[in-house]
Design a binder for these strands. Structure first.
Lengths: 228, 228
DNA sequence: TCTCATATCGATACACTGTATTTCTCCCTT
DNA sequence: AAGGGAGAAATACAGTGTATCGATATGAGA
């Protein structure tokens, strides 16, 4: 690789904005997880010096906030279904799908209040779906409850998915036989209910489990709405 | 601080075990959050060299796993209430209280499968509470749903609490008037439902909100149990 | 058009991180 | 008493987030 092969470096600094920075950071995170996102690497991907980013963000945490907000744009449904139940379901599933596309989202979900424009828009969509169907306090409680559920469920799903990938075993195999630790623990007899669950339970796929729990929670919300 | 004031360093290396290591790590995390936990600092607190710890754990992540499991010992109820509903409620509240005592727990909750002895014991307790009240699959779904809820709810609560501390404003004040960003966003009129919630909603304390949502979810579980 | 001021970008610097590897020291066995 | 082996400590490395500072390039003013 001689001088002649290499292009001259750009004389003008490459133009930058938050959008480009966030896109680069998301690309890095999609490829290598959250810990692959470093200020230096993001800057390098943009042909800029690391310190340059600090004109646009003042802390790495803020970069994460921007990334989360950016993904919330994917979560926001293009058009709001009329049915409140369907609206909340769509929000939950969109969030889950976003987390499957961007697994690092699971690490950040629920970790900080989402105050970016897209985050607020998602909250607005959730509140709007229930608007008028009950007093405002009930509506708030409903939104909080549903989103607490799917936040937790998504985190667990991704955590399990990573564990499966790391061990190369499906959750089932790994609990059943090949996971030395768990097998040993179950064999002690100290966890009879857990053993029964592992050995007698049918293992449903993650999406079904997610949907089932979601429907239960939505049922609960429905019950509170009808009785204001 | 002259030589004469300082005691001689111990000639024999201080004895170590996982328990001591985890206790030191938890103490550090309680004082300064998760990011205050570094291998060097944990080791220093034990009068040991950093590398010593790697005889007991093989990665820092494993230290976090041990910390989480240790806290699960606080979560486990000393005696199981007969009522399934009460049992799950206690589990949820104990988890919440543990997270209030150890805020760093919120950062880790749901992040990885909890396979330590105490983590398994907590899961066992949850499953045992519902054992026999429905088919095993329903029971599993119920436990998953409830724990997804309280995991998510606790994370949000801690996230809000930190935000309030950081700004010095209560969530209410901060949304209402003093939070420049949120105020500005609400003033745009793009978030009518959100604005209504902020201005017309009564702000309940975190515990009430937690309990309310939990009861809803438990209602949903109850509904599924009675109809097997 | 030339000079100076100001803003911005990049380089350097610092204190720290997790962890691999090497060096040393002390104890036990022969 | 000597040798060997285990385990602790020191060193080393490749990174990290971010403060600070020096150079540079661009705009304004004369």
């Amino acid at each position: 690789m001689t001088v002649w092969d290499r292009p001259e470096p750009p004389t003008h600094p490459v133009p930058l904005d938050r959008e480009r920075i966030v896109a680069a950071a998301i690309a890095l995170a999609d490829e290598g997880g959250l810990e692959a996102v470093s200020v230096r690497k993001v800057a390098a991907r943009l042909n800029a010096g690391p310190m340059r980013l600090y004109g646009y963000i003042s802390t790495k945490q803020e970069l994460f906030d921007l990334m989360v907000d950016e993904v919330h744009a994917e979560i926001l449904p293009e058009e709001q279904p009329g049915d409140w139940r369907e609206a909340l379901r769509v929000l939950a599933h969109h969030t889950r799908q976003a987390a499957l596309r961007h697994e690092w989202l699971a690490d950040l979900l629920g970790g900080r209040p989402t105050l970016g424009p897209n985050g607020l828009a998602v909250t607005e969509a959730a509140l709007a779906a229930l608007d008028g169907l009950a007093d405002i306090d009930t509506v708030m409680r409903a939104v909080e409850t549903v989103s607490a559920y799917f936040t937790g469920a998504i985190r667990r799903e991704i955590a399990n998915l990573r564990a499966e990938r790391a061990t190369g075993l499906s959750k089932r195999d790994w609990q059943r036989a090949s996971g030395p630790h768990v097998t040993r623990m179950l064999a002690t007899g100290r966890f009879p209910a857990l053993a029964k669950a592992v050995y007698d339970g049918t293992d449903v796929d993650a999406e079904t489990s997610f949907t089932t729990g979601l429907d239960w929670v939505l049922d609960a919300v429905a019950a509170k709405l009808t009785r204001p």
